[in-house]
Computed example of a mutant assay.
Amino acid sequence: MATTDDYGQGVSIATLTDAPDAETLARNIANAITSRSVMRFASSAARTAALAGDAAPVEGMVSWLQDTNLLYVYDGTAWRPLSTLLMDWTPLASVGGFAPGFTAGTPVPRMRKLVSMGTEVWEYEGRINITSLAPATTTTMFTFSGAHRPTNGRGFQVYNSSHHGARLTITQTGPMVVSVPAEAGSGVAVVYLDGVRITNPAS
């Protein structure tokens, strides 16, 4: 009588008392390995056609679609992408405008939007050059257009050209504001956006 694997994964294993059947033995092993590996399909339609009947998807299955180049996991109800790119890296100049005295540096400041494990994430990177920044003062350096504003303001600590941290806030009304402590003086010439990340921007 066939038994199962030692890891509780339901893989059927023939025993010495089973009648010899090489085809069944091979099929049991192949089906078990395939259903528990990353299955590749040309499209969602091809996946639906292949995973039907006895091969219907079960919770925890993983698949890769070649047309979207995305990895999906089946949650028992539907195939969910593990990561979806909503907006590729886009220069800030294309999603809003710089305030006077602030310009794009190198690397170019930019943002992207994606869904990671079901959570929407906005990421930022790059350098903003500053002509003049008064210390201990909240100053607008950029304003985002409507589609790129979080529902509520978010605050961050970021690097700048001084030895002091800068406080950065991306507001719900559009302005991205920055302030440095009085100890930084008036010589701050750069603010870096690397590492700035908003999760659930609609919350």
Rank of each mutant, 00 (worst) to 15 (best):
F98R: 04
F144D: 00
N160K: 13
F144P: 00
E125S: 10
T138C: 03
K113H: 04
A166K: 03
S116L: 13
H164K: 10
A99S: 14
G126E: 04
H148M: 02
G155F: 06
H148W: 06
P109K: 07
G97E: 09
L114A: 13
A166D: 07
R167C: 08
F102I: 07
R127S: 13
L133R: 04
S132Y: 09
G96R: 03
G105R: 10
N160M: 13
S145Q: 08
Q172S: 15
F144E: 00
S162I: 06
G118L: 11
T140E: 12
L133N: 05
F102A: 05
F144I: 00
M117K: 09
T138R: 14
W122L: 00
S161P: 11
T137G: 08
G155C: 04
T173I: 11
P135V: 10
F142A: 05
F156Q: 06
L92I: 09
V115D: 03
A104V: 12
F156A: 05
T140P: 05
T106S: 15
R167L: 13
T151N: 12
G96L: 03
R112L: 08
A147R: 01
R149T: 01
V108A: 14
S94Q: 14
Q157R: 11
G118M: 10
M141A: 02
I128C: 04
T103F: 07
G96C: 04
P100Y: 09
L168P: 02
N160Y: 14
I130K: 05
T173A: 15
A136C: 04
T151E: 06
G126M: 05
A93Y: 03
G153R: 04
E125H: 01
R154N: 05
Y124G: 00
E120M: 13
T169C: 03
G105S: 12
R127M: 12
H148T: 00
R127N: 15
S145N: 14
A93H: 03
T173L: 11
F102K: 07
G155R: 14
Q157N: 10
H164R: 11
V121Q: 07
T169E: 12
H164T: 04
M141V: 08
V108T: 15
R149P: 00
A99P: 01
H164Q: 14
F102V: 07
S161H: 10
A166W: 06
P107E: 13
G126T: 06
T140Q: 11
N152P: 00
F102S: 05
R112A: 05
N129S: 13
T119K: 13
R127Y: 08
V115W: 02
V108S: 14
I170F: 03
Q157S: 12
G155K: 12
T151I: 02
I130G: 04
R110W: 01
R110P: 02
G146H: 08
S145V: 07
R127T: 15
P107S: 13
G105D: 10
R127L: 15
R154S: 01
G153L: 01
N152L: 11
N152Y: 13
T140M: 05
V121D: 01
G105P: 09
F142D: 03
L92G: 06
N129F: 02
E123P: 01
G118V: 10
L92D: 06
P150C: 01
P135R: 11
V108Q: 13
R112N: 12
T173G: 11
P109C: 08
I170N: 01
V108D: 09
L133H: 05
T119R: 14
S116R: 11
T106R: 14
R112Q: 11
V95F: 00
G155I: 09
A93G: 12
V95I: 10
M117H: 09
